[in-house]
Nucleic acid binder design. Structure first.
Lengths: 348, 348
DNA sequence: CTGAAAGCGCTAACAC
DNA sequence: GTGTTAGCGCTTTCAG
């Protein structure tokens, strides 16, 4: 293995100088800097992460705490993961995965062993048991999602309340006076997950404010549940002309079910979703974006700020963006014809 | 911070003894062992990961290299991730995430800095550019998926070839004589991804062997593409009575499209999928399981074996398991009625 | 069965 | 602007 001493010898300088070239923590004359860089390149030197962590008590690793619970939409989680990893890499950080099932003990273990510099925690409940632990550990942490009391924390989230309201406003402007809401599985509300409750609250408040009739129901991740919810909504709100869907997993089925009940989408019932753009694009539905990439990146940036001793605001809320998609909604019903792309070619 | 010296003093032993109690690398008398354990507990001692790595050149961290390319199904990747993390934890290992976009350089960086003990690489292409790098790094690695030449490597994979054949066999036994194959996006085949090609090969060979008419087409992740493929298949194989689908992302649409073309599922066209059980269960389709949890766990176990100096076989293939689901397939068409669960209750 | 002590490779005072 | 050096906390010989 090639060490810092090897590099120092090769460049004819002291080990510390090599270190300073690498960290930039003290000025090095241009000449030596170049020489050291060349030696590093030539010898293929890579600082030993453990040694560095030991000497500097900085690991350049952050922990990403993942949810694994019912009702979390795997593709969305995966989008967060990739955006966090890429953002972290841009700050020369690596990402250590901690699954939520390891609970508070997992956080303790990882922090206690000085394995990570800070935490990124996803899927925070309104009254999350990990919050006291996070405080006690005294390591910088940023939450993706936010609990009820935000004081002393750093949280990033989409403004779900505004998102729920935004859907209503958009539909109201189009003239709808009776709007349904199809939400996440009931378990998600039962465990007081912030984003779900807030979206619903924003939706309800906006409907109330505008004197719009509305009803909200949770939907499980099964076709029959979605179907039951849709028929119930149609029964309870006979004049329902629009539906807000906050449940990525069953979004496609919602359209199916409306059609199965004889409602054309969007002519009879307009559908607005709160979901990742990619999914809405695929189904060609109007939607409020769930910008996992932006949220992930912002979370990493806030964590880096805290690691550098700054005190970012306790709550960063991203304003929701509604993207209106008109035109034919897929999937189509029997009998209708799609615009076809080129004829598929055989797999080679 | 509480160090090994603190524990040693508290227990009245030498630091080395504490170390040996922890690692078990040399026998310690029952009495002292208990005393040391108590002190550790009492003081809340956690070994410093960096110091440990420096002294022992073992990090207890493994790198998981994730694919991020077009056509990889995010939920499936996420299932692998969680199963790998949980299996790793069972071996007292943590998981560091490396995204494939970091490429060979990412592997070099992580290995060179002694950040990890070994690699788990997902989504390996038949002629993967990272393989030579992995060899050169000289760290234990296990591949999820396998390239064409397996010599000197350690790979775990579902036996996709057998999976493709299994679908044909199952359908043949049910009397089908004309079977279509709807595959992954063409990009997946273009980049010579092992699992996709092998499934197709197994399917084609089995059809050939049994004298069954068959046609295979790739499908993009858009409704119009799926629709085009389905109509093309129906045109090219007019007597097609069964369809094998190897494309999780569009599985639901396939059923929609068949119905849009006036074919009842499964009465007119039987559909067999190769996908995670959960998805098949949701759609109530017969399927060959994609057991991400088993594969992930097995991969970790093989990596641990290599870290312990063993030489596991170069290729572990899991036999495919077909799970037959009969009864109504969702989603239903307009006019048809689902068995309803209980009436949904309002979101509190 | 246990202790003493020499590093592991790097950083960050402290010197000049 | 650069060199010297004392640790960082742990493992692991070598001694007993």
């Amino acid at each position: 293995m090639v060490t810092i001493v090897d590099v120092a010898k090769h460049a004819g300088v002291a080990p510390s100088t090599v270190s300073y070239v690498l960290t930039g923590k003290r000025p090095v004359s241009a000449g030596t800097r170049v020489r050291v860089r060349e030696s590093i390149q030539l010898l293929g030197y890579q600082p030993h992460a453990g040694a560095r962590a030991l000497a500097s008590s900085r690991t350049n690793v952050l922990a990403l705490v993942l949810p694994l619970r019912e009702g979390v939409h795997l593709p969305v989680v995966m989008r967060f993961v990739t955006s966090v990893v890429m953002a972290a890499r841009a700050h020369d950080m690596d990402v250590l995965l901690v699954t939520a099932d390891q609970g508070a003990a997992g956080l303790r273990r990882v922090a206690g062993g000085a394995r990570v510099d800070g935490f990124l925690v996803m899927d925070v409940a309104l009254d999350d048991e990990r919050l006291p632990v996070l405080r006690e550990l005294g390591r910088p942490a940023v939450l993706l999602g936010h609990p009820s009391a935000v004081k002393g924390l750093t949280c990033v989230d989409l403004d779900f309340e505004a998102a729920g309201a935004r859907c209503v406003d958009h539909l109201a402007e189009l003239g709808h006076r009776s709007i349904g809401f199809l939400g996440a599985p009931s378990a998600v509300y039962a465990r007081r997950t912030g984003f779900a409750q807030r979206t619903l609250a924003g939706f309800s408040a906006a409907a109330m404010r505008r004197g719009i009739a509305s009803t909200a129901l949770p939907a499980e991740q099964r076709y029959d549940s979605v179907h039951a919810v849709v028929t119930t909504l149609l029964r309870e709100l006979p004049r329902m002309s629009a539906l807000v869907v906050h449940n990525e997993a069953v979004l496609g089925w919602v359209v199916d079910c409306l059609r199965a009940e004889g409602r054309r989408v969007p002519d009879d019932v307009a559908v607005v979703a709160i979901c990742p753009d990619e999914l809405a694009e695929q189904l060609r539905l109007t939607s409020v974006q769930l910008p996992a990439d932006v949220l992930g990146r912002r979370a990493v940036e806030l964590l880096m700020a805290k690691l550098n001793g700054q005190q970012p605001p306790p709550l960063t809320l991203l304003p929701p963006k509604l993207f209106s998609r008109t035109g034919p909604v897929v999937p189509m019903l029997a009998g209708q014809r799609m615009r076809l792309g080129e004829t598929p070619r055989r797999v080679s």
